[in-house]
Each structure stands twice: as C-alpha cells, then as structure tokens.
C-alpha cells in the first residue's frame, strides 16, 4: 500500500459541506481544504501547494484556524482534509501576527524574489527585521524559498530524481548531487514550471538545453529533420514517442511541432479534404 492510496478516499467521493469564514461551500470528502479555498477564490497565501502532489506542509503560509467544540486550533490548510461540518476561519489576529513574521523570514531568505515581495506586500509586509541572505554564487539567484516543489516534481511526477535537497537546516539548498552536471535530468523544465518564485532557470543554446540552475547540466535537444531547428529535449522526445501508436510515431518522429503542422496541412490539401480543423484530433 502506498501513501498516496491511503491518503485518497477511493471510489465515489462523498459530498460534504465545509464552512470557511462563516460561509458554506461544497467539497468532496477528503479534499484538501486549501484546494477548496483556491476553487472558491478565498485568498489564502501559499507557496508549496501543488494539487498533483501529496500534502507537504513546508511553507506554513496557508495557516487557518479550525473551530471544533468551541476550541480553535491553528493548522495548515494544505494538510487539512474536508469533512462534514469542518469549520475554519482565515486571517484571524493570531494568524496575521505569525504570518507576517513568516513573510519577513521569506523576505530575508529570498531577497531577490519579486513574487515574494509582491505577496508579502499584499499582506502589508514590505520590510524585514531579519538579515537578508545574499549569496552572489547562488544558482537560484537568491529567489529560492526551499518549498520543495521542484524536487518533488522531478522525483514524484517525472521520476527523474535529478535534483534534491543538499545539506540540512539553514544550509539547505536544492541542486544536483555533488553540484555536478547530472545525466538524470531530462531537461523537461518541470522544476521551472512549478517554481512559485521563478527561481529555476534554463535556456536553449544551439543543440543543447543548459540547466543553468542545476550545476550547468546540459541536455541534448532533438533536431527537426525538416527545418533543422532544435525543438525539445532528445530524451524526452524519445520517451514521449514510446507512449504513442506506431503509425503516429513514424509520422511525427523527427519533426518539430511547426513542421509537423505544415506537413499535416499539406497532406490534407493533397488528399482534397481541405485541411479542416479536427481531422487530426
């Protein structure tokens, strides 16, 4: 049994009603409360939440107070699951007090992050009392808040395990093992995609994708047979092709999306069908 199986409710989801700030909302039983709030457009700040991954609870910004039997308990809404009668409130004086300190800690930890500055400013925090961490050698440009999303996306979604946490406590950073270029990276860029502070960077230089944040890891790109342009990481292109039907595979192998589109259009015209939309769904 995996953790994921155990944490999902399985089968048909029971509908429950949860109360947020005195208002009732429908939810699936066991659904992450932060997810409900996001859907209902109730503002709860968060950095480490990603619906496709297991609850993680690292950024501590999504604190809410659960009201139960007249008592209130502070907890993170990204680890809280919807149940019938669940009642929470956001932005209580205690939450605001502690969250503001957390924002100050983030401003000190990632002083170059515009996302953090904007988020903190939305909650009225524009300055930090704490010493700012400025490291000119930081490959993440002093923007990383160690939310762990890139590591988890790389490990749990892509199954690559190219990056991980290095060191412990305040010395923790994210990078490749031993800060060396790694062959485990597909160059998929999922890390950059999920990064809430836009700290992860990579760029395509000629025939290579250079993962500038990850110790200069270089990933070869696939070249289009038609136009000669480089369009996707080679390893990713090969592994993606393996998942599709053989006839389609032959058709799209070695072509970039633009050239493939052109070929489809040409084939359609030659076949006299006029290349109508949807014929190649």
């Amino acid at each position: 049994m995996t953790r994921k199986e155990a944490s999902s409710t399985g089968g048909a989801k029971k509908q429950v009603t949860v109360t947020i700030n005195g208002k009732k909302y429908p939810a699936d039983e066991g659904e992450i409360l932060l997810g409900v709030a996001v859907r209902e457009k109730i503002a709860i700040p968060h950095l480490c939440y990603e619906p496709s991954l297991d609850p993680y609870g690292a950024c501590r910004l999504c604190m809410v107070e659960v009201i139960k039997d007249g008592k209130r308990e502070m907890t993170t809404s990204c680890t809280l699951r919807a149940a019938e009668g669940l009642e929470v409130v956001t932005d209580t004086p205690a939450i605001v007090k502690y969250r503001n300190v957390l924002f100050e800690l983030y401003l000190a930890e990632a002083p170059k992050s515009e996302v953090i500055k904007e988020m903190a400013a939305r909650y009225g925090v524009t300055k930090t009392r704490f010493l700012k961490k400025l490291d000119t050698t930081d490959s993440l440009g002093n923007k990383c808040v160690l939310c762990g999303l890139c590591v988890r996306a790389c490990n749990e979604i892509m199954g690559a395990g190219a990056i991980g946490f290095v060191n412990r406590g305040p010395y923790t950073v994210v990078n490749t093992p031993y800060f060396e270029p790694t062959k485990d990276c597909f160059g998929c860029g999922a890390c950059a995609k999920v990064c809430p502070t836009k700290a992860v960077e990579f760029e395509d230089r000629g025939s290579e994708r250079v993962m500038t944040s990850w110790s200069g890891t270089k990933v070869p790109l696939a070249r289009c047979d038609c136009c000669g342009g480089y369009y996707a990481p080679k390893a990713l292109a090969i592994s993606t092709l393996a998942h599709i039907t053989p006839s389609l595979r032959e058709e799209i192998a070695a072509l970039c999306p633009v050239c493939r589109g052109r070929r489809i259009a040409r084939d359609e015209i030659l076949a006299g069908r006029g290349g109508g939309a949807g014929s190649h769904g």
């Binding site: 950024c59 000190a108 930890e109 010493l131 808040v145 160690l146 762990g148 412990r168």
Partner: peptide, 21 residues
C-alpha cells in the same frame, strides 16, 4: 536546534537561524 533542523519548513529553518543571530 539550528544545526539539527531538517530544513523543510521555514519557521524552523529560517526562524531558528535568525534567533541565533
């Protein structure tokens, strides 16, 4: 405690460091 913090959550990782400073 700063040296033994695992570094996962911000209050422990960053907060203890600044408490030490």
């Amino acid at each position: 405690a700063t040296g033994e913090s695992c570094g996962k959550c911000v209050p422990c990782r960053e907060g203890l460091k600044h408490a030490l400073l």
